[in-house]
Computed example of a mutant assay.
Amino acid sequence: MKRRELVAGVASVGILGGGAAVVWRGFRSPRDGSSGGAEADAETDSSEDAEDGVIELETIEAPGSDAGTISIPTDGVALVVFFSPVCHRCRSLMPNLVDAQAQLAEMYGYDEDDALTVVSVAAHQTEEQLRDWWIEHDGNWTLAYDGDRRLANEYGVASHPVLLALDDSGTVRWEDEGVLETEKIVRNVERVLEAVGEDPGDETVGGESEDETEQEETAANETDGDDD
């Protein structure tokens, strides 16, 4: 049985749109009828929403990315990276994400027809600004624009960067945030791919060992001062 649950909590206090805001995060399946908050309900209840919970995003012509659209969820596993070009941690994450994407692409491919799709999603800036940022930071996979924040609201994402591994039903199989090491990204996406391949009904991939968790929490604490 697929797990449909909402995990919500205060993630951080940051500056969004020039004003102070408490950032709440929650994750759910797009086919889950549960609420991610009044704003999320208002956004995802629009007539544009597909009947099956699929959200279509505009894709931007940039290195590794073609102009067009992409549907989330995909037919396989999708690693979705929510970012903002003005986010310090997003810039710090990119070198590790570039390496992780290259390793995963070599092992699994990363197009919609493959087992894994990697897509970075932004909701701010112009297409030209996003393309310039993408080139500057060596992005080389699908770059998508979520201008109305339908996808971000669907998963309760309000901080950056946030990484979600979704199966083909849109269920979150792994989620994390901040400046993650290459090895951690690759390891957890591999676990999701293996779990989905063995049994699509498996629950969300479990956590790390205690030693790994302590190391990762220490690294995260060193970057706590960075906000969007």
Rank of each mutant, 00 (worst) to 15 (best):
A105E: 10
D168V: 11
V121T: 02
H160I: 00
D167F: 03
V119W: 06
G178H: 10
I135M: 08
T182F: 03
W141T: 06
S120K: 12
G170R: 02
L143Y: 09
N188E: 10
D113T: 12
V186C: 09
A152K: 11
S169E: 11
R191N: 09
Y145L: 09
H124K: 04
N153H: 09
Y155C: 10
S169Q: 07
H160K: 07
A123H: 07
N140I: 02
D138S: 14
T142C: 04
E127N: 12
R173A: 07
A165S: 13
R149F: 07
K184V: 05
N140R: 10
E127Q: 09
L164V: 00
N140K: 09
R187G: 06
D114S: 11
H160V: 01
E177R: 10
W174Q: 05
N188G: 04
L104S: 07
L166I: 02
E181W: 04
G147S: 09
E154R: 15
E177P: 00
V189T: 06
K184W: 06
S169M: 01
V186G: 04
H124V: 01
L130W: 07
L116Q: 14
E106M: 05
W141E: 10
L97T: 11
V162S: 12
D111Y: 02
A105C: 12
A152R: 08
D168R: 09
S169P: 06
E154W: 15
Q129G: 04
V189P: 01
A122T: 08
V192A: 08
V192F: 08
D132M: 07
A144C: 06
L163I: 08
A165V: 01
G147I: 03
V118C: 15
V186N: 12
L143R: 11
S120D: 04
N140H: 15
L164H: 06
P161R: 03
W174S: 00
A152P: 05
P161W: 01
L166F: 00
E183S: 07
T126H: 05
D168W: 14
